[in-house]
Design a protein around this nucleic acid. Structure first.
Lengths: 185, 185
DNA sequence: GTCTATAGTGGGATAGAC
DNA sequence: GTCTATCCCACTATAGAC
């Protein structure tokens, strides 16, 4: 089954609680006992709804991909600088849901069941923003992901340039030098 | 104490075994019990040498920073394209020590004791390669880190361009568009 | 279909004896 | 420094109640 396209009402409720728990306490705080406590059941009962913890995390990540897709869609519609607007949407998502963001890119995808459609959708919007240039898309993705991850990990020492400056400098440089076609008008 | 500048001979031996275990079994395989087994002692005895597991990981990461610094130094000496050569050294390190690399950028530095000198040294080489341009250095770092992390996580779907192509395209674009001074001759 | 109780494995960590 | 013993917590599996 694809992890959360067809969740039962009870499973959906558990995943919603897990989202709240994740944002409040981080990935380390997302334990089966704590989650079950909040839901009002015993920890082993979670395994009636999910085969294991990875499948539950897969549902969380699939939700994250869907939300990211929504943000991309909103950023792209009517934009006259889709690459920058999609990139900004990516970083805004990372800052709005830091723990979910880190979970999305830390879990080995191949070992979990994710909603494949949600993931494809984000790729389609990125491809749309970069005019179909797959090299350009992945180079942009690498920069955006790396900066967001380092920013969340507080890896840029204080006293230096503001992260916003790094962000716009990197985006401008890549946009100027990468051979990306403009989006189809 | 800075985590591994002044390790006792016994602690040094334990860390060496931990390096081997980490590379063979990954971060999840690095448990205190397994490590102790390999060393030939009981798990609680590890705590005579390290306050907790984080301090032990800090020693591993400090070693990684020192090795990375060595690689940077070798890459820079006599190079006529220091930015690219340092970047290549970074990626080569990520591929040579994938589990250590991921550990270095996953552990929250502020919560561990790392060897501050080792970290400063890597920054100095990066600064040297970018001619002191701190914005350029961090933008480069973001791209290199993001691509290496995505590559190690197998996040670039097969069938697309080879990662080497993304790597050189990104480096070329950033080098062309970022206002970095050449290194002092 | 959902939940409970129970038990087993394995991880990090501490206390206290030698 | 090292040991034994112990604690707490996590995930997993099974059997059975409703």
């Amino acid at each position: 089954m694809d992890a959360s396209t067809q969740l039962s009402a009870r499973a959906r409720e558990i995943v919603d609680v897990a989202h709240a728990l994740l944002e409040e306490e981080g990935a380390d705080g997302l334990s089966t006992r704590r989650l079950a406590d909040r839901v009002g059941i015993r920890a082993p009962s979670l395994y009636s709804h999910f085969a294991n913890k990875q499948e539950l995390e897969g549902a969380l990540v699939s939700d994250g991909l869907r939300e990211l897709g929504d943000r991309f869609e909103a950023a792209i519609s009517g934009s006259d600088d889709p690459v920058v607007d999609v990139a900004n949407a990516f970083r805004a998502f990372a800052q709005a849901r830091p723990h979910l963001f880190r979970l999305m890119y830390r879990v080995p995808w191949h070992e979990t069941q994710l909603d494949p459609e949600a993931e494809l959708r984000t790729r389609r919007f990125i491809g749309q923003a970069t005019g179909g240039d797959i090299v350009g898309a992945r180079v942009f993705w690498s920069f955006c992901y790396g900066l967001c991850e380092l920013e969340l990990a507080d890896r840029f020492p204080a006293g230096g340039p503001v992260v916003d400056e790094l962000w716009s400098a990197g985006l401008s440089a890549l946009k100027a030098a990468m051979p990306m076609s403009p989006p189809a008008a």
